[in-house]
Amino acid sequence: MNLKVLIKIFRKTRDYLTQGWMIAGLAIVILLPFAIGAGLYIKSHNILVQHSFWDLVGSTDWKPLSGKFGLYPFILSSLWITLIAILIALPIALLSAIHLTTYAKPWVLRWVHPLIDILAGLPSVIYGIWGVIAVVPFVQQIAEFMGYKVSGYSILAAGIVLAIMIIPFILNILIEIFRSIPIELTEVTLSLGATRWQTIKKVILRKALPGIISATGLGISRAFGETIAVLMVAGNVVKIPSGIFQPGYPLPALLINNYGEMLSIPLYDSALMLAAFMLMLIVLFFNVLGRYTIVRFEKRM
């Protein structure tokens, strides 16, 4: 065998091996979510043997010591907080993104962009602290003004803090979306006699709609899973919130406050795993919903 053949074999083997590694890497990435999901499911299996899934999800009775694990208040708290956060964050992010990409001078965007990145990168505990010292008293005063006597720790406070946290995240996506729309589309629309605002309203927003839906979906996913900051201002009372000034107890807070403690209580750890599993499913649901809507929309356009 001469050298050339040897080199050839060596190269082929190396090629084969590197390719193998790539596939292995890819496989890990693909399998990871399934592995996590499966792990959570197996761990929560114990409780599902004794109680039906819908009983657990639909029940409001949370008394671990007497073996009652109703997750409904937590799920509902999370949904409320997320809804409030999105309702506040989306209009603000949308208006800012439109302004930054159409009306504002280029230097404004150049300055604002790093600022948004900084906001997006702040540790969530900072938002939490700020929520406690600023948002909670603010909410308390508003409530007082409206005739409610509350502490301020509430799903509204959590929603506001969460909104502030996801605004930079959503805004960044929206800016990219609006920037990817070619300027020519604006030019041709203007040349048809449309005003600047008509152009934005009837053409640009429409063109951006799949992106806006996707940004909202990702924003919801992120908001739903956010833990620390929300936990610090939500009040954490196990009760279905009866109004926006009432405290709530979101799912992630339930996990972080209780996991590791009192695990000697039978089925407690399994119930928390089920809560984690639910959290994962809900986040997944919003993600898939967002993507599915985009696909449907793109087919229609």
Partner: peptide
């Protein structure tokens, strides 16, 4: 907008508005 309306613009690539064929023509 009145001035621009006097002039039709055709770009390098077609940029159809994100709507139906009918609405594209009816837009203006």
């Amino acid at each position: 907008t009145e001035i621009r309306k006097q002039m039709g613009l055709l770009a390098q690539r077609p940029f159809p508005l994100p709507m139906s064929i009918f609405k594209n023509v009816a837009f203006g």
